[in-house]
Design a protein around this nucleic acid. Sequence first.
DNA 1: TTCCTTGCAAACGATTTGCATTGGA
DNA 2: TCCAATGCAAATCGTTTGCAAGGAA
Lengths: 158, 158
Amino acid sequence: MRIIINKVTQRPPHAPISERAIEERLAGSGARFTSGRRQVVAALSGADGPRSAAELHEEMGGEVPVSSVYRSLAVLEQAGVVEPHHGARGLTRYEMAEWLAGHHHHLVCESCGGVEDIELPKQLEVELERLVGKVSGLSSFSASGHALEVDGRCERCR
Amino acid sequence: MRIIINKVTQRPPHAPISERAIEERLAGSGARFTSGRRQVVAALSGADGPRSAAELHEEMGGEVPVSSVYRSLAVLEQAGVVEPHHGARGLTRYEMAEWLAGHHHHLVCESCGGVEDIELPKQLEVELERLVGKVSGLSSFSASGHALEVDGRCERCR
DNA sequence: TTCCTTGCAAACGATTTGCATTGGA
DNA sequence: TCCAATGCAAATCGTTTGCAAGGAA
C-alpha cells in the first residue's frame, strides 16, 4: 500500500500526533503510556492506512509478541486513541482515532484487500456531511459519524 | 434489528427475488440451486440487513449445519448472488447482491453491532454518486463501487 | 455412472485469556 | 510495596477443509 493520491488530498504520513494528549487519555483510563504502546502508536501514526495486529507486529520488528500488540491495541482503543476498522477477510485493522489523525475515508482494493486513506477536499466533505445529515433525518437512528468507502482497484493491482 | 426507517426509504423485507435468475447464475458456475442454498437465499432476502453464517444457521432453524451454510454462502458469492460485508468484531455477514436487492447503504449501531439497510432517496443517491466520481478523479485508484456507512445508535440502543 | 452436495470432525488463523514474572511510581 | 504491563502458552471463536456418504442428472 502506497499513497498515490495527489497533493491536494494526500494525508501526511506523520500527522503531528500529540504524545501529551495520548498520555492524558491513557491516564484517564488508569493506563500508562508504556514503551510497547508507544511503539504501536508510532507505527500506526506513520502508516498510510489501517494496520492489523500482525502487520504492526512485523513493522515493529517482531520484538513485541503479537499478544502484547493485541493488548496494547485494546487499551488504546479503550482510551479512544485508536479505532478499529473491519476489512477484507474478517481482518481487524486499526488506525489513529479521528481526533488525532483527522477525518478521512478509505479506498479499498478489492483485489489485494489493502486500504488507503483519503482526505476529501473540504468542499466535498461538507457536501457529504450535509448528505449524512439528511440520511439520519430519515430514520430514528441517531448518527454520530460516517465513513465513505470507495471500492475498486489500487494502482498496483490495476 | 428492526427496520425503523420511514416509508420513503424503507427497503421491502422481501424484495421480488427472481429464483429463475439465481438458478441461472448458479448454473453458470456449474452449481445447482439446492434446497440448502434456497434456504440461505430465502433467509437472506427476508432479512433487513446483512447476516452472518451463524445468524443464518439459527434463523434457518438449526437444521443445516453451519459448515454447510458457509459452503452455500461461498458458492452463492462465487456466483454473484450474495455479497460479503465485513462488520463488527471481524464478523463477515452476507447480503443479497446489489442486482438482486438494489443499491443501498448501512446504518451501523456502535452499541450492539447490528446493521440495518437504508435506501437513499434517489436525489441523495445521485448526489452521492457524483461525489464518489469526484473522489476517484482525485486518485489513481479506479473506483467500481461505493458504500456509505452511517455510524450511531439504533433506536433500540439509544 | 458421474459429479455435485452435504455432514461430521479435524484443521486453521486470528484474537483472547490465565498465570507467573517484570517493571514503574 | 502495589498494581499495571508483559511474555508465553493454552484456550476460543469464526471459518475452512478432508473425507466418506447421499443425490440428482
